[in-house]
Nucleic acid binder design. Structure first.
Length: 230
DNA sequence: CCCTGATTCGC
DNA sequence: GCGAATCAGG
């Protein structure tokens, strides 16, 4: 495989979006991870936090090596000392993890003076915040009390008029404003340009006339999403 | 072991 | 210019 303009564009785009060299190599096909890295360096693309290279800059305390992966799986619960027993089937699916702060009776007790053989000090905490049983235990240490009544959560007042993800349908503009994860992230919400997912204004941003490649100016690197020229 | 990116160096 | 080999950290 050779590095055609299209493939280089794709490499730049994906690299700029934070994809790993392996992902880019898979996406492009016909090249190895090393080829991608080598090409990226030759192109002078911005280097990534390398696991090998130490961060010399002491003024930048946040190296943030966590790769922004799409759909990161839920973090595995911390297991201490004991393998987790099979999770028991819960009678009814709990819609919410019920974030009410539950005092942990024994788990966080750092008191080392409790060497009772039948009282294990460590207990693993499951994803929902429940405490896992130890192998010998017959009953859940905290019997789950299902909520009797479900009250729909009200959105915060300052977002009440903003178009959230749940408000989206095919009649309103899905143009995102802000960035996911930010507290005021929402969508445009104006009536769509019929047949398009965006309103007329945002269609003007989303769809632009393609110019001949030779006249194309490489756009400056965007914070999110590459130029996606094709 | 797996993964990652950086670097080297023969082609 | 290209990329396999290698290095080295997570």
């Amino acid at each position: 495989m050779s590095w055609t303009d299209e493939r280089i564009d794709k490499l730049k785009s994906l690299w700029g979006q934070g994809h790993t060299a392996s992902q880019i190599a898979d996406e492009l096909g016909g090249v190895s991870r090393n080829a991608v890295i080598g090409k990226a360096h030759r192109l002078g693309l911005e280097s990534r936090p390398s696991p090998v290279k130490g961060n010399e800059d002491a003024g930048t305390p946040a190296p943030a090596p966590a790769a922004p992966r799409e759909a990161a799986p839920a973090p595995a619960p911390k297991i201490e000392k004991v393998e987790a027993p099979k999770p028991r089937p819960v009678a009814a699916a709990e819609p919410r993890p019920a974030p009410a702060p539950r005092p942990e009776p024994v788990a966080a007790a750092p008191a080392p003076a409790e060497p009772k053989p039948d009282q294990p000090v460590y207990r693993s905490i499951g994803p929902g915040g429940f405490q896992r049983q130890q192998p010998g235990e017959q009953q859940s240490p905290i019997p789950p009390a299902p909520p009797r009544r479900l009250v729909p959560a009200k959105p915060a007042a300052e977002f009440a008029d903003k178009t959230s993800l749940l408000d989206l349908n095919d009649r309103i503009c899905k143009w995102p404003l802000g960035h996911p994860g930010e507290p005021d992230f929402h969508f445009c919400g104006d009536p769509v340009n019929p047949g398009f997912p965006y309103c007329v204004q945002h269609c003007g941003q989303a769809y632009q006339a393609q110019m001949p490649r030779r006249d194309r100016r490489p756009p400056p690197p965007l914070p999110y999403g590459g130029p996606r020229v094709r």
